[in-house]
Design a protein around this nucleic acid. Structure first.
Lengths: 266, 266
DNA sequence: ATATACTGTTTATATTATAAACACTTTTAG
DNA sequence: CTAAAAGTGTTTATAATATAAACAGTATAT
């Protein structure tokens, strides 16, 4: 029972949530006993398959096990709890190929690529945003994404706090856009033959409920049909994602300019 | 059974989710039958009380009803489903006093006020961000918040699409910050005598797992203790919220300047 | 050779949200 | 004034859920 004969990794594993430790491959497979008929990867990929098809709510231990030809309880020989399974699913969804690095002066394009790439995860796995975030990323693939976001900042004159703040800004934006995009995809898929976006169903209702006295600034936007997404065709701004992203990049650029010794701007 | 003898509001109610219709007060109280011993407001405020204390997971129909001295099923005489109750809770949390309007030239301060105000909702009701967003806001108090966000844009030379894009940017940022702040508050409260932030518990583990070969850009930040929030004291950036917010406001300002007829910048 | 550690299964439990039927109460239509 | 109608809160019941505990069988280490 001595704690001394542990590798640093094994010690690290004890400090992490079980799901994260599994993700890092820090849980050694058992030596004795019957051969295992499943594997963690198999379970996780089946769970993802179910979630991709029927949503995260459809992912129950029973459903996964049945799909694999086993009983629900057998899964607990591999994964300590469902929460840990969710962590593993999340990390697996982050296992994507990263694009090749760009030269430093293309940092804006690099950041666009990062945001778009993150949004793509939400589109590929609509359930991704349904898994609650419990804290900072600590699983291997998730951290690779963070590393990706940091790449274009490498040679910029920023300290670690500034870099993390920018990553936080971009990743948060990517997450918001990802969930928005997912909502739209869902609505399109659900009522493909009827309405285009969740808001449109409510468009008529909002027009009667939103009064100019109580909602002076919202009122005209509801009336124009822009609020509910009804009038998306004539959108002057292009993709919703695009507009905000360019504003943020402009803001970052301005910060860099100021920091690099007061550019031409006052 | 004619549909013609309905007020426009009653017709609107039929197009909204039940929770939203209740929020708008579009469900008329019954005329016959015994006097009601509860009310929607009573149920919602008790649910919020429970959620504030023990988190959203603790809010069960049973718990609410018991706290009020009734049985779980009695709640269904007031609210059609738990999902509707969640919508009502969300809207109730948005029922906050708005600050007085500022003159147009103080638009940056107005937007700061809006973001800070939204974050305050997450701090006051840590469960607020746990309620999933199903689409655009359609409940009365929630829409008042949207109206608030639109205020400083009123007299700007922007069309409705541009305005909504900016609101989306700011509200998304506020939500991200709100959830971050909530995470920190939770961690502080949970391990107040031990660690300060969720990340710190994992700090040591990450130091052994994050290798420079696989995470070249993340590695130094993990090692410096900035990634896990360990070294928050010397933060050069101030509040995490602040930094990103100022970048976004700068980006918006630049857009306005460009739009207003090409300022001094190229 | 045998103890040990592990396998997948069966059985059981505590929580959920909520449907259905019940006896009772108030209002409304005749 | 009297039924019918509509609504009250309750009891009972149901289907899902995650997961704990005990089981018989199997592979490995000593």
């Amino acid at each position: 029972m001595s704690n001394d004969d542990m590798t640093p990794e094994e010690e690290a594993a004890k400090m992490l949530p079980a799901g994260a430790a599994l993700g890092w491959g820090l849980v050694k497979p058992p030596q004795r006993g019957p051969k295992r008929e499943m594997s963690i990867d198999l379970i996780v990929s089946k769970a993802i398959e179910i979630a991709d098809q029927d949503g995260l709510a459809a992912v129950s231990m029973n459903r996964i096990a049945s799909a694999l030809g086993f009983t629900a309880m057998s899964l607990y020989r591999y994964i300590p709890s469902k929460d840990d399974l969710l962590i593993l699913m999340q990390d697996a969804a982050c296992d994507i190929p990263l694009p090749p690095e760009r030269p430093p002066h293309e940092w804006r394009e690099s950041m666009r690529e990062y945001v778009l790439g993150t949004v793509a995860i939400f589109r590929k796995h609509p359930w991704y945003g349904d898994i609650p975030i419990l804290g900072i990323p600590i699983t291997p693939n998730n951290l690779r994404i963070v590393d990706w976001a940091l790449r274009p900042l490498r040679d910029m004159p920023l300290d670690d706090f500034e870099k993390m703040s920018i990553v936080l800004l971009l990743s948060g934006y990517a997450r918001n856009c990802g969930m928005l995009r997912r909502d739209i995809d869902r609505a399109v898929q659900a009522g493909s033959s009827e309405e285009a976006f969740s808001g449109i169903n409510y468009s008529a209702a909002l027009r009667t409920l939103v009064k100019p006295e109580q909602y002076p600034d919202l009122y005209p936007i509801v009336m124009s049909g822009v609020y509910s997404g009804e009038k998306e065709a004539e959108n002057t701004v292009g993709d919703d994602l695009e507009f905000g992203l360019e504003r943020m990049l402009d803001g970052i650029e301005q910060y860099l300019n100021r920091k690099m010794g007061g550019g031409t701007a006052p």
